[in-house]
Design a binder for these strands. Sequence first.
DNA 1: GCCAACGTTGGC
DNA 2: GCCAACGTTGGC
Length: 161
Amino acid sequence: MAYWLFKSEPESYSFADLQAEPDRSTGWDGVRNYQARNLLRDTIKVGDQVFFYHSNAEPPGIVGIAKVVQAGHPEPAAFDAGHHYFDEKSDPSNPTWYQVRIQAVNPVEPPITLPELRSIPELAGMELLRKGSRLSVQPVTAAEWKLITGLAKTSKKKKQG
DNA sequence: GCCAACGTTGGC
DNA sequence: GCCAACGTTGGC
């Protein structure tokens, strides 16, 4: 069991969009970075848990939790000539791009914002907070996961009084 | 294999 | 909208 953080711009695909899917799940397609592709193809497994992060948002932050329901498999969109993610250089017999399927578990309400994450000394080494970090699929350590989900519960209790 | 040019990401 | 940081491309 491992932990990950997936970035998405809410304007293109939000956590609400994921929750609105018929089975609350989607194939995580459109990743066009080889480091992230390798994680999708080789490393991410069924049952792994995922922070759903909104980038280019106001504010950016973790807005939900999802889980992996299907491990890495070739990304169909890359072979679909009509699709935005079509890649004519990708050979179906040796696919370039991979996806996993994730399913919404629950929203994080209120979201845990980027400034909030930055304010926590224990998270100083987190990939997301690294200067210049752009990886859209990135590992999260068990300690980071535990700490952040703990924050989510705390803020939820506060909200409920 | 080097590296400049270019495109993208994503916080601010 | 700006721009720093990064990845990719392509000329040489």
